[in-house]
């Protein structure tokens, strides 16, 4: 199959996101060490690893916020240095920050304008994503008065603007209460059914197991394993068991 794809140059159709031998060093420290993987169209992909494994650095390199020291990151076959690669990409950062002087609605209005949505179309889209994230009533308040969970919801709403083809979520449930986590899962399931490609960086393995198709284990900046959840998790096992085994370097 791989040969057929290469022969017909079908990679651009299949792969939404490609990392090729990506390395990021900070002085003598290798935060990311030769990581390569691909995320296919419509795939829900999770990056799993302990704190300091290099997951957030990978996510930031995907979004063009941090440049790799070596290797390449491409979205839809476009290098992340090209702004157009982010035209159909939504991003939710870990513990999302919103300028406190803006209201949630103003924040979304700016986000919408930056992807070319203005006027009535922007208003309709903002109402849609606010309703989806349960923040329509609170969106008129200044972000300085928002709780962590509210900022996270507005951040998710911003990421969903314009129906992105690729959604990159860095710890999306960070700061959310159990209702928020449930809502987030429902939103992601809806997006998955709609065919969106989603990359999630999360610690909550039970949520990842419910939503994701594929997981990649990262530790000390290295990719330890990448496979479908159904292939990794054996009978009577949970993803947590597999995760612990992978991190401890045991076989199986």
């Amino acid at each position: 199959m791989e040969l057929v794809k290469q022969f017909f140059n079908l990679n651009f159709i299949q792969n939404m996101l490609t990392l090729t031998s990506v390395t990021k060093t900070y002085g003598p420290t290798r935060a990311v060490d030769g990581v390569s993987f691909q995320v296919e169209n419509g795939e829900v992909f999770a990056l799993l690893g302990p704190n300091g494994a290099g997951k957030t650095t990978i996510v930031k390199m995907i979004m063009g916020l941090v440049w790799p020291t070596a290797g390449a990151v491409t979205i839809n076959n476009m290098p992340t240095a090209v702004p157009a690669s982010r035209a159909k990409t939504g991003y939710l950062e870990e513990q999302h920050r919103i300028p406190p002087r803006l209201t949630g609605r103003e924040y979304l209005s700016r986000s919408a304008a930056l992807i070319g949505l203005t006027g009535g179309a922007a208003e309709a889209e903002i109402d849609r994503v606010l309703t989806l994230c349960g923040m329509r009533a609170e969106s008129f308040g200044k972000a300085g008065g928002y709780s962590k969970g509210m900022r996270q919801r507005i951040g998710l709403a911003a990421a969903l603007l314009g129906a992105p083809q690729l959604l990159v979520l860095d710890e999306p449930t960070s700061g959310l209460d159990p209702f928020g986590i449930r809502d987030m899962r429902q939103i992601l399931e809806t997006l998955k059914q709609a065919g969106a490609t989603i990359v999630i960086n999360s610690h909550i393995l039970s949520e990842v197991e419910k939503i994701c198709d594929t997981v990649a284990f990262i530790n000390h900046g290295r990719l330890l394993a990448k496979d479908g959840i159904s292939a990794l998790v054996g009978p009577g096992e949970t993803l947590e068991d597999v995760f612990v085994r992978a991190m401890e370097g045991k076989n199986g």
């Binding site: 702004p83 035209a87 991003y91 300028p99 930056l114």
Partner: peptide, 9 residues
């Protein structure tokens, strides 16, 4: 992040 995660160089 608001600006640079969008198609803005």
């Amino acid at each position: 992040v608001l600006y640079l995660c969008r198609p803005i160089s």
